[in-house]
Nucleic acid binder design. Structure first.
Lengths: 352, 352
DNA sequence: GATGGGTTCGGGTACGTACCCGCAAATTTA
DNA sequence: TAAATTTGCGGGTACGTACCCGAACCCATC
């Protein structure tokens, strides 16, 4: 029941190297003031002992706090999707705050590029030690990523990736494959080879994410040699009336639609439309574990929801920064989230 | 960047109560040697300040180690299912060992009740602070649970639950609902209303888990008014030859089987049989993310795998004990794992 | 009023690491 | 060669809590 006395810490290293603890400490934090010779000697001993610093003591002795910034879209009336990542962020924040880590959250408006840039500047001015962000605007995110890299601030992307950046990690879905899974699910409900409709409801002008999902979706049909014609529609105004108007038009022009795939969480709008227009026999697949979506899942209007664990993305994102900054460990550059399939039957136990 | 100086610890409590730190400490750990009057005074101040002990300092100062026991089936040649929980356990163990928590793992033979009891005794003799176990043998697990309760050792069940025990927590699937989901998935592949076969391959004599799954499975058919006749078969010898022999017999007696549901991870045996006997058009649903199962999923013989994140069960189980013993926090008594649906398309990103 | 035993409490050190301060030796400068 | 730096290093204290050791105090008893 006694703690393993054989714990080998700085004291033991110092003893073996015939130096003081302070010198070992200097080497460990590669501070100046140690001759090359002793530095090498100490490093050898560290390697030999496979020294693992005691984080408890380390964080306790350090009077510094580590401050992390989080930049995500604010929750709008239209969709509360970003509540989930925020929950995960807060949960992680709660866990690490006892280790002297502090979070500050910055929000931007998904319909306003400027707000994104403004918040980016605020973060850079705040002199933080790490950043977690959703790179909703591709070009602006790239610039910010560059700035972080120059200042050696580790940066983690969630929800969607920005390729070829010096970021610490990406934690989020493999969008192409996600669309592929969506197509597969849709085919379970396909009876004939009538038309399939892909709906993108988004005010965002950058449709980088959306394109990858649709790519995956179409690829499945191609791979399976499904003959269904795939038609598509973009709806820029995200309010229900606008969605209903556009869909009415599509249905007027295409009488043979037997399935709909919505590329994001706004599938509930489509479900509402189908309900209102008595078209609930149409197969419907969409994204994300939102309350509205679950309701339509339970009433059978939505057949499947695909989900990428948004809360866990937030949680893992913060933990990756913690890992990197506090523990000094390595973090995998890309961590793909699972592509979860949610149905009426298993939704009760889903962990968002 | 400086740590919040306003941290109020035992020192401040002692100052306000006009006592020494040691006295405050005695109250915090409700040790003896403090008069009721001062105890009350100190407790009031603790409440007033909403004092949160610094775990870092606490664990650092404590020379005690916390030792946890893990009791799970050993990995057999037949199935390596228990590798996953063990991985999760080890991952958690790795995380908490820096905080003075030590794990010892005990294995028993799923075909040997005695080995289970033997290991239980060993654990009780080892004077551990907490136990994580798979209650594979119901009655024996109950006895062990009682013993733990008497000795005030927190106990966590994973994989399956034992109702009405004084255990700290259960972390695992809702078996009934899991069977329900299995039935739903199977119906996606059902074309007519021919027979459905439920297969249970298990040497275990206690089929407590299995029964709940089959209950859920049948309930779905009842709820949906599916007319398919459900036949069932128990296979006690888990080797492939035995499985093939039993299945051959069933198929000889029932020509109209169009779908099979296997109630545990041994679905690969059935898949192998279907492959060997050219019956791959039959729908097949089973359990668990094992390599063999994934292979058959990829080759299209298995349609769906259901999975309850076994690795995470192990991880969360240890963390629950850590939470309870180190942090002193509360733990939810039942934590149902998600009922994950794994297909060929999303398996690459599944987190077991 | 002295003695004893129990109760209540404080001082002090330790946990392993971070980092300030200051001293001595080595090196450069005058 | 002496003085002024610079470099290399050790001593020591602090972080917030745990817990040992003993001291002071109380009340009862003779």
């Amino acid at each position: 029941m006694e703690k393993d006395n054989a714990y080998l810490g700085v004291k033991e290293i110092a003893r073996r190297a015939n130096v003081s603890i302070a010198t070992v400490d200097r080497v460990l934090h590669n501070r100046t003031g140690v001759s090359e010779k002793t530095k090498k000697k100490i490093n050898d001993i560290i390697k030999e002992l496979d020294y693992q610093p005691n984080i408890l003591a380390s964080r306790l002795a350090s009077r510094k706090i580590i401050s992390l910034a989080v930049l995500i879209p604010k929750v709008s009336e239209e969709t509360d999707f970003w509540e989930s990542p925020l929950r995960g962020v807060k949960r992680a924040g709660n866990e690490v705050k006892r280790y002297g880590v502090q979070l500050t959250t910055f929000f931007f408006d998904l319909n306003d590029k400027d707000s994104f840039q403004t918040q980016c500047k605020l973060i850079l001015d705040a002199d933080v030690n790490g950043v977690l962000m959703s790179p909703s605007f591709l070009e602006e995110a790239k610039q910010f990523s560059e700035a972080c890299h120059k200042q050696k601030i580790p940066l983690v992307f969630i929800d969607s990736n920005v390729p070829d950046q010096h970021n610490l990690s990406y934690i989020g879905p493999h969008l192409f494959q996600s669309g592929y899974v969506g197509a597969k699910l849709l085919t379970y409900r396909l009876k004939g080879d009538r038309k399939v409709l892909v709906v993108n409801i988004s005010a965002e002008t950058d449709n980088y994410n959306y394109l990858q999902i649709e790519d995956g979706f179409r690829s499945y049909f191609k791979d399976q040699k499904q003959l269904n014609e795939i038609i598509r529609i973009d709806i820029r105004d995200t309010d229900y009336l606008s969605v209903a108007r556009h869909l009415t038009q599509v249905f007027n022009q295409n009488e043979e639609i037997e399935a709909i795939f919505v590329t994001n969480s706004r599938v509930f709008s489509v479900a509402k439309f189908l309900t209102n227009s008595n078209r609930t026999d149409i197969a419907l697949v969409g994204y994300d574990f939102l309350k509205e979506n679950i309701d339509f899942l339970n009433s059978g209007v939505i057949d499947f929801l695909i989900c990428h664990k948004p809360e866990e993305q937030g949680y893992r994102g913060i933990m990756a920064l913690y890992q990197n900054l506090v523990i000094g460990g390595t973090v995998e550059k890309i961590h793909f989230m699972p592509i979860d399939i949610v149905t009426r039957e298993n939704q009760a136990f889903y962990q968002n």
